[in-house]
């Protein structure tokens, strides 16, 4: 009984300490001792929900990480990608990826100061894997999720080539794509704003 009454108090104190000392954008783990104190009387498990099979997870687990985890089998290159782009992408992004009307993908003329401020894959995207992930999950806008993995590899290759980052013949696959270093990666920093009076 003594243990039961003291424990929640100690846990609450630990929780308060954690919240006061760690910025809440800190991606670190929260130990079991600092969980919400109002859940301490919960059972270990409620037993609601069902185990999910590996097959079911695989069917929807489409994300690709910068280290290449999640990239599927297959390959592609910019020569093939250019043809797919013309048919499935150019209506929204322009013949060369610079004209719009929707998001500009290719930097193009870098001598113009105005163009340098435009966010494109070549000057703003920090990871090449993100191009694959996003095109596969959300493009084309009117037929999302309709591209094959091979088509996505080729489109990614075309967009990287059009931005001057790989050659026209470079083969992209699960091994080569994560190795591409994007020019903008060096500019990215985690949020440096903090609680308190400093405006950043």
């Amino acid at each position: 009984m003594l243990v039961n009454t003291i424990k929640p108090f100690l846990l609450a104190a630990a929780s308060a300490t954690f919240l006061a000392t760690v910025p809440h954008t800190d991606p670190g783990t929260v130990s079991f001792e600092t969980r919400r104190t109002d859940t301490l009387h919960y059972p270990e498990r409620f037993g609601f929900g069902k185990p999910v099979s590996a097959e079911k997870i695989a069917a929807i687990d489409i994300d690709v990480r910068p280290d290449g985890k999640g990239l599927p089998a297959g390959k592609g290159n910019a020569v093939i990608g250019k043809q797919i782009y013309a048919v499935k992408c150019s209506a929204c992004h322009g013949a060369s990826g610079t004209e719009g009307p929707n998001d500009r993908l290719v930097l193009g003329d870098t001598t113009s100061a105005k163009n340098r401020r435009v966010k494109t894959i070549g000057n703003y995207w920090p990871y090449a894997t993100t191009v694959f992930d996003y095109v596969r999950r959300a493009m084309p806008f009117n037929q999302p999720g309709s591209l094959t993995d091979e088509e996505v590899y080729s489109l990614t290759a075309y967009l990287l080539h059009a931005n001057g980052l790989i050659s026209e013949k470079t083969e992209l696959n699960a091994s080569t794509l994560p190795k591409i270093v994007m020019p903008a990666k060096k500019y990215f920093v985690p949020d440096d704003r903090e609680d308190g009076p400093v405006v950043k």
Partner: peptide, 12 residues
């Protein structure tokens, strides 16, 4: 996971 996924929304 043990790292961010660097999705389009949190990068570009």
């Amino acid at each position: 996971s043990d790292q961010p996924f660097m999705t389009r929304e949190e990068t570009s």
